[in-house]
Structure formats: structure tokens, C-alpha cells
Design a protein around this nucleic acid. Sequence first.
RNA 1: GUGAAUGUAGCUCAGUUGGUUAGAGCACCAGAUUGUGAUUCUGGGGGUCGUGGGUUCGAGCCCCAUCUUUCACCCCA
Length: 456
Amino acid sequence: MDKPSLPKGTRDFGPAQMARRQYLMETIRQVFRSYGFLPLETPAMENLSTLTGKYGEEGDQLLFKILNSGDFLRDIAPEKLRVKDSRKITPDISEKGLRYDLTVPFARYVVMNRHEIALPFKRYQMQPVWRADRPQKGRYREFYQCDADVVGTDSLICEAEIIGMITEVFAKLNLKEYSIKINHRGVLSGLAELAGVKEKETSLFVAIDKLEKIGEEKVREELLAQGFANEQVTTAFDVLTFSGRTEDKLKFLRAKFTGVPTGTKGVDDLTEVFRLLDQYGISSQHVDFDIALARGLSYYTGCIFEVKIHGVAIGSVSGGGRYDNLTQAFGSKERLSGVGISFGIDRIYDALDELKLFPESAQTSTRVLVCHFDEATRAYGLPVVKQLREKGVATEIYPDITKVKKQLDYADRKRIAFAVVIGADEMASGQLTVKNLATGEQQKKTIDELVASLAS
RNA sequence: GUGAAUGUAGCUCAGUUGGUUAGAGCACCAGAUUGUGAUUCUGGGGGUCGUGGGUUCGAGCCCCAUCUUUCACCCCA
């Protein structure tokens, strides 16, 4: 038998990690709920027809596909098999795939349940997604996304609230050094139009998205290599490299986009988002209007967001944006606009871990261990355990009869806060020995005193 | 998907130009202490050197393949 192992890019999460992950998820859930989002879960697998074509060509390549059940090769025409091109026979042998993100299944759900959904519909969803990527640090093949989306309204209040939620989540996590980058697809399209490269938008966006990472020179080289004309690139960079405060950027772009409706729409929306943040009293100190922010997912049409934590070598920990046509991709006749945000908790976990920001409270386990010496003292301890549990105190009793040393050792390893030692003396007097494992101090308490002191 | 690096005990790592039975620290288990953990002392278990081939009288060390992890590209949470 081979040594057991895990598929590439997947991980187990032990109790210590789970405590921290749950702390993260609970923090996010609390914020989502306070903004009026309600939970939704969808299946791990979707029909491939639901998934393909929504994420661009690259995305389709990264889909995990599920082999059909049964003897699926039997009915395939032999000449198809002879070609030995697995992509050609994929539709014949696979009709399901693992979900790639939570937004597309959400859009599918909205279209399927349109009749019973009250618009605007706000849902949050925290589930794993799968991507057949090559793993690296902060990049896994199975990871959790925590999404909140609103569908059925164009109001930019949603965008402002997304920024509000990000700000609140990060404040609760005690993360102070981060930036929320915001841009608008309209600004990017306007830019492409100005440069006269409207038909090659996508390759322009992909290139300028790397501006911060590889610098202006390299991006120029890449664009020229892709056949963009020198003056087109220069025009684009004139706009991209403008620096200044947000208001200055908006003013500058508004002037540039005279007679360019898509660009003007982008500037209008962003202006409105910043105005709403102000009215809401949501701090925009972490918000950074970045003209070069593009983001890959092809379905975005309006504002786009991306969040980076400073001081850690981890990609973006959160991203999102507005998408106008996603429900139409599922045959909806009605135009439903949606906007949402996704937190990548695996990356946030890595960042918090690296920055040592997990609070002590995120790693608590059992609070009390009841220790004993023999069957009689163990039996005496059982109702003590029961009483503590009824008061909501996480309590366990050492199941085997063994030396106190071993029982305390167990308590120490599990970082249990208190040990209650019950021997013949305690049983006779009713005064139990309560030991604080952190300080080592011991005192005698009756059962009632014990329960009262620990119940919160 | 493309290009590169890595892998020796549970963990972090030594291991000479290829040469006998592969080591350390920490961790683990047991005892010193039959009512007390985290500190001390003593002893113990544990490795087909990632896996499979090859070269050699002889491979942890050299060669090939494969897997894992990591890095860059691509893309992204």
C-alpha cells in the first residue's frame, strides 16, 4: 500500500487551523449579515454548460471536469477516439465540473428562482471553489471564497457598501496596512477608445494590469510586441501615469473623456461612489483609485475592486465588481445588474499568520478538564461535567482511569484552561481542587462555586 | 499549460572526491515522583534517504523518469 497523500494543491485543516479559519469566516459572516445579506449554498458541481464561457478562455482551461459515470466510452464514435485529442471528446465524456467561483452559480440560481426572489436580492455564500491551476504560495487548487453579491439594482450604494464591508472586516481583523483598489471598466474602455485600440481592449487591459508589478517600460515593450502602435501606447500611458489625489484624477479623466461616453460613464460612477462614501461616513482612507487596475474575469462591466494587504507576498486577498450581463448568459430576458465582493480566506489566513495577527481567543479549545483517580471519583465527576456543560462551559472528563500526571499532560497539550481534580478527599469534603493551568495556582471550590465562577 | 529549484526520523537540518551497521537538536513514549502538566534527570522507539528504474565491486551522494513542495511566466482568491 502506498503512503497516503493528498491531491496537489489541497490541504487538511487540523483543529488549530480550523479554529482560526472559523474565526475568520465568522468575522466576515457577521459583517455580511449586518448589511442584510442572507446565506445561500449551491452544489460543489455544476453542469459544464453553466460554467464554460463565463471566465474567458483561460478560465475554461482551469475548470476541473468530472468524468461521466458508467461506461461512457461505449457510445463514442471510434473515429473521435482515434484522433487522441482529449479536448475534442470532453463533451462526450464529461458533463459536470467543479465550481470555479461563487458568482456564476449565484447568477444561475437567480435565473432559476427568479419568480420567488425579491429584488434587490442580497446573498452571501462561503464555500470552496476549485481551479486546476499550478499551485504556489497563496495559490491552491481548492480554496474558500466568501462572497456577498447584490443583484437587481444599479444603485452605486452597493459599491459604497462593498467598500464599507471590506473596511469593517479588515478593522475587525486588526489589519491596518492594506489598500482597496477601485477602478471602472468604463474608464478602461474609454482609455482604449482614446488610444484607438477599441478592438484590442482585452490585451491592453491584461498588459496594463501588470503596470505596478513589472513597471512602465516592460508594459510598453509587451504592448509594442503585441502590435500596438507607438503613439497608441503613448496616448494610453499619458492617461495611466497621471498621478494625484482622487479628485484630481477624476477631473483629469473627465476632461480627457469629453465625447467618449463609456469613459464619462466610468468617471460619473466613480465620482458618485466617492460621494456616497462621504455621505455614508465610510472612511475612504484605504481606497485607492487606480486607473491601471483591470482584473481578468471577463464578466465585469462597471466598478471593479481588488484588495491587497501590505507587507506580505500574497496576491490579492479580495476582489469583485459589477457585472451587468451575467444573468443574460443564462437566458434571462430581463437585464439584471449585479455587483459583489469575494474574500479569499485562505490568503487572508496566510497573511494574518505571517503578520502574527491571529488573536489568542481564536485558538481556545476545551475550558475545563475533569481529572480523577478511580471509578468512584470518575463517577463523582460526571454530574460536574454535565452541570458545567449546561452553563455553556466546554468541558471534558478524562475517559480512562490513569495517573493524574497523564491527565494534566493531556490538558496542557490541548491548552485547556482549568483542571478540576477529584480525589477521595474532594469527594468526601465536596471541595473540588481547581487548578489554573496557565498560572499553576490551585484553589478549593464547591461545585456551585466552580460553576458560578466559570459560567459567563 | 511553459521554464527552473527542492525532497534524509513527526519537525528543522548535518552527512567529506561514491566506501562498512545514516547522525544531531527539538518532538514523541516510558521511568525518576503510586494526588499534579508546562521546567530538570535517565532510558527508549522511530528512517526500504520522496518513488521507480539505471551506472558501479559498491549509491543518501552520479544519470533518467515520476510525484510533492517552492519560484518565475500565464492567470487569479
